[in-house]
């Protein structure tokens, strides 16, 4: 009997703590836009994130950052956004009660595959970070063989120099004969 009461008390406590966590997390919400993207390698896209303060008090000093996870079958891994984005994290000084902050995360698509992008907001007043729903990102492999029209120069110039050399060489040889 005592054991049952204790168990019920522990469950009650856990539920209460969990409720307060949800409440703390619930005062800030974050969304990501667009909900899905299909693009090519090398393209530049921008994710927009709306952080809303649902509480009656202003929230201060939030940290919001974007994350990307590779969900391509066999390549599942979190991504290091070093080359993908120059500004991965933003600090939001204050969001007034029931106000919102619109953040933008430009990104350059470096590698092909299937990914999910999501924005995480860390509120130091809260025990858990708040995460947006995931935005699916499908990047198609694209092979650019001639960027900036480089091939005519890259192939043509050594050939032209070789041809000039051959011309001078043959001219000199004919003169010698």
């Amino acid at each position: 009997m005592i054991k049952s009461i204790l168990t019920a008390f522990v469950i009650f406590l856990a539920t209460t703590v969990n409720c307060s966590t949800v409440f703390a997390a619930g005062r800030v919400a974050v969304s990501i836009d667009p909900p899905s993207v299909q693009a090519n390698m090398g393209d530049k896209i921008t994710y927009a994130g709306a952080i809303t303060n649902n509480s009656d008090k202003a929230v201060n000093n939030l940290i919001a950052y974007i994350s990307l996870a590779n969900v391509t079958p066999g390549k599942e891994a979190p991504m290091d956004l070093e080359d993908w984005s120059a500004n991965k994290a933003v600090k939001v000084d204050v969001i007034p009660p029931h106000g919102a902050y619109e953040g933008k995360w430009p990104m350059r698509l470096i590698d092909s595959g299937s990914y999910v992008a999501y924005i995480t907001v860390v509120d130091k007043e809260s025990a858990a970070p708040v995460t947006s729903p995931v935005s699916r990102l499908d990047i198609k492999r694209i092979l650019r063989l001639n960027p900036n029209n480089v091939l005519p120069t890259a192939i043509g110039e050594p050939v032209i120099i070789g041809a000039v050399f051959l011309f001078i060489y043959l001219k000199r040889r004919n003169k010698a004969i």
């Binding site: 390698m41 090398g42 080359d83 120059a86 350059r108 470096i110 590698d111 650019r144 960027p147 900036n148 480089v150 091939l151 120069t153 890259a154 192939i155 110039e157 050594p158 120099i161 070789g162 050399f165």
Partner: peptide, 22 residues
């Protein structure tokens, strides 16, 4: 000719890489 070949390779690598990097 070697100078030109090296510059060709470098330019091509830089430009194809620039499509995918910052």
């Amino acid at each position: 000719i070697l100078t030109s070949v090296i510059l060709s390779v470098l330019s091509y690598l830089f430009l194809t890489n620039s499509e995918l990097s910052l």
